[in-house]
Amino acid sequence: MTTHDNNNACCAQDVKPERVQAGRTYVPFVDIVETPEELLLLADMPGVSSEGVDVRYERGELTIRGTVKPRQEAGTRYLRREYGVGDFHRAFTIGEGIDAEKIEAELKDGVLTLHLPKVRALRPRKIAVKPT
């Protein structure tokens, strides 16, 4: 019997960010939650509307990108400035245990939610014991 490393199969790991675009890009905060059926990825992307979000999955790499339109004029003089406004970008490698075809995304109130369902073989199954 071969053993599968289930933890690794359904794990999302950070990929080093690549910086190619002009302007400042921010790394969104994420939660990655594992349930018996799926991995759930939540990313804080304030200021991103549904037209500005881009989710891609290619060769085991999941990339999330959010475009943020400037909200203030370029020359705004802030009395107080605690955060910068810019695009969001983060990438993860996803284990083979994820059914890439069935990845779903939704965006609400500046939070991106990704549903990454596990392949059927990795989902827990209850085996019914037949009466003899």
């Binding site: 939540l42 804080d44 992307m45 304030p46 200021g47 009395l79 955060y83 109130d109 500046g110």
Partner: peptide, 21 residues
């Protein structure tokens, strides 16, 4: 976190609160 700026008539305060309804 907040950003604060002003113009002649008003003061603007902006805060990022993702996921807050």
């Amino acid at each position: 976190a907040i950003n604060v700026w002003e113009d002649q008539q008003s003061v603007m305060i902006e805060a990022e609160v993702p996921g807050v309804r």
